[in-house]
Amino acid sequence: MRTGHAVETYGRLLALTTNPITWAWAGALVAALVALPWAVSGHLLVVSTTVLIATVGVVGLNVLTGTTGLISLGQSGFLAIGGYACGLLIRDLSLPTELAVPLAGLITGTLSLLIGVPSLRLKGLYLAITTLAASLIVIHIILYAEPLTGGPFGLRIPDVSFLGLRIADGRGMYYIALIVAVLTVVFVNNLMRSRSGRAWIALRDHDIAAKSMGIDLVRYKLLSFFVSSSIVGVAGALMALQLRFITADVFGLFLSIEALAMLLVGGVGSVAGAILGAAFIVLLPEIARGLLALVGWTGETGSAHVFEIRAVVTGVLIIVMLRIEPDGLIGIWRRTKRYWLQWPLSV
């Protein structure tokens, strides 16, 4: 029977997991994801790629909003910076993609410090609105800096390759997204166990108390902005590579709200929750379509108002999740796991 953690050394505290079964399951999941392109193709493969890219983005957002507790409504702005930075580096400077994607992340992270500095004085709601303002300003600049970004005519990205995988090829793009997603998840999971991760959690729970414990608020808040936005920027770069044609409209406000919805539905503050949430929200329209087809409903309203229905379903889901399950999908999973681990002694 598994018991609670009794960690004796600092090294074990930093380890990703002390349980070999967890490693086995994680390995099985990655193997299944690697094998996926042989099982599905066409539209479903594109959707799977989108799930992976959304995972990168939400895991990044989770660092800022879930772990550090700084609510950001500016996700779409950071995605836009990452996407445009990657696209321009490839198109105008002909940088190799392997270099352009991480550079796009770094550029996004650096620019995010411009928003991070005001955040030092702001909290909660005022911060959320500042990030919202910043993302609106970013989109505006992109739309009107026509000589650089193409403005309303968008930015087309040539068919380049990443580690020998071509981005125009569905399978190639899937593997690119998979590699980045796995790297991101491992990186963030490690970070959460480090000094920085624990400092972020402390300042989320009470920043004045954290400060009196010797945590440098300025440094760790800015670091959180930088790390989170860099990861989100990489997600934006992947979006640009997947779509291969981006305009400012791609990065609308709804994207920021959808990202927060993924975080909430999955479970705030947990990397696994972020992954579950991203998968759930992206797959939701597919699930809804399947269910509607199952009952034989393909009515006119359904086809004419696809986007509206999707928005309504997302909104209802956010409200319902917040009401009945504030811990998100990961909360359901944890409770189920605990129940069966202790069965028949569980309550």
Binding site: I71, G124, I257, V268, A311, T314, V316, I319, R323
Partner: peptide
Amino acid sequence: QFSIIMTTVGVAIVLRGL
């Protein structure tokens, strides 16, 4: 407060769609 604000955001997108 985050949950309550997100509830109003949920209401917003539902109304926007309806």
